[in-house]
């Protein structure tokens, strides 16, 4: 639908094209989009923006261009501090700028700004050192933001648990609270992230499979390393398998000791229910 304010519409589209250009407003004015909207601005910017006593028209427009990237890169930095640590400030800023150019925000919710950043690092970014590891770190950091904001929901209480007949457990299906994520990695990502948080300067690690459960408890996001059997079991349950099916699936995986699994699983459930991670159990 065409705007009822055509001139205003052109000015707004023109200004956004100019101030969001990664190389600055002067270059933004000369993009095909900006030229099609207000060609007179490219001939002489003073046709559209007046200078002040102290600043040219271009300098005044550039104030907005500076703020656009400064503000949004800072938000990506706050969300991806370990990714920033690995890449270094200059490369992180260059990549963040390129990401924002390719994936401008389409939401009022700034928490969604970085939602495609891990995929961008994996698929679009130019020469990223240690790319596989960096992408996994970015995935963990992104998932942390999602768990932080996830829907609130009640968790099952002890009385509801106690009321489940023992013979029903094998067919029971578990529903987890929305504020959980199960992540599997090729690298020991959680250990690295924690080391950086602790102020250390860890080397980029060698590949080694790892699994992390992210969850929100007492309004904080926690990262818990999982063993391989725990991760397989949780993944199966989150897919919708019954507890019996999930245990059988886990026990059938190479290298997993079924007897040890049977001995351990009660303690795991005690921990997960104690952390209020289970929303309901369907029997």
């Amino acid at each position: 639908m065409e705007s009822e304010s055509p001139q205003l519409d052109r000015i707004e589209r023109w200004m956004l094209a100019a101030v969001t250009h990664p190389n600055g407003a002067a270059e933004g004015l000369r993009t095909p989009e900006a030229l099609s909207l207000l060609p007179e601005a490219a001939r002489d910017l003073e046709n559209v923006v007046l200078p002040s006593k102290n600043m040219s028209s271009e300098e005044r427009l550039q104030v907005y261009a500076n703020m656009y990237y400064w503000r949004l890169i800072d938000i990506l930095f706050e969300e991806h501090k370990t990714t920033h640590h690995i890449l270094g400030a200059d490369l992180f800023c260059d990549l963040a700028r390129d990401y924002l150019h390719r994936h401008p925000s389409r939401s009022k919710n700034l928490a969604l700004l970085g939602s495609s950043f891990p995929a961008y690092l994996a698929e679009e970014a130019w020469d990223v050192p240690h790319r596989d590891f960096v992408v996994e770190v970015a995935r963990l950091e992104r998932a942390t933001e999602e768990v932080f904001d996830a829907l609130r929901s009640p968790s099952i209480d002890k009385e509801e648990l106690a009321a489940i007949p023992p013979e029903s457990w094998a067919d029971a299906k578990l529903e987890f609270i929305p504020a959980t994520r199960l992540l599997s990695f090729k690298y020991p990502v959680n250990a690295y992230v924690q080391a950086v948080k602790d102020g250390e300067e860890p080397e980029v690690p060698e590949p080694a499979p790892s699994w992390v459960l992210l969850y929100r408890h007492d309004w904080r996001v926690w990262r818990s390393d999982l063993t391989r059997p725990q991760a397989i079991l949780l993944e199966s349950l989150r897919r919708g398998d019954s507890l019996g099916e999930a245990l059988a699936h886990t026990a059938s995986q190479p290298g997993i000791d079924g007897d040890a699994l049977a001995a351990d699983v009660g303690g795991w459930f005690q921990k997960w229910t104690g952390l209020d991670l289970i929303r309901s159990i369907l029997v």
Partner: peptide, 19 residues
């Protein structure tokens, strides 16, 4: 923002009758 893109900044309008 405009055209579905959010600049997350407070951009001015031209102060005229149309705006």
């Amino acid at each position: 923002g405009v055209a579905g893109i959010n600049g997350h900044d407070l951009y001015p309008v031209p102060y005229n009758e149309e705006s």
